[in-house]
Amino acid sequence: MANYSANQFKNGLKIMLDGDPCTMTDVEFVKPGKGQAFTRVKMRNLISGRTWEKTFKSNESAEGADVMDRDMEYLYCDGEWWHFMEPATFEQFAADKSAVGDAHQWLKEQDRSMITLWNGNPIAVTPPNFVELTVTETDPGVKGDTAQGGSKPATLSTGAVVRVPLFIEEGDVLKIDTRTGGYVSRA
């Protein structure tokens, strides 16, 4: 992989640090009027998820990481691995629990997710911002109470449990925001 010098750093650049691929989430140029310039970077370790700030001198460099994001279709889970397919090439990839993380509760067969590959192996799974999932279990709906507050838990087809309004019934299809895990509306 290419080496990048600190003055080429930018948001989204992936580099290797201590053996782990890391992404830059915020790059700030710190340049006093006189004297040495620095580049202060908010980093996220793509394996552990740890975020922290690191400072580079402007003449320092870092090795690029072979990391890419690809849109893939979710196929199935065999209990240990989550299987995805690149729709254009039919190439399949298997992601383990640590790569899938919390995303597992939003994965529905045939939905597209973004898979982050490092040296060709999945290390992270980012579901679409919104998914539509069917309610498999919830207390009976309360008719006529569409505007009032109040909520109840509902279990979705993927096993996720979300808070929903009282009028929701089993079999309803709901739109969920995967970033917050919150109910948005009936689909």
Binding site: G35, Q36, E53, K54, T55, K57
Partner: peptide
Amino acid sequence: DVAMEDEDRDS
């Protein structure tokens, strides 16, 4: 978190 190896005080 700074990797700098520099012997210059001013840096």
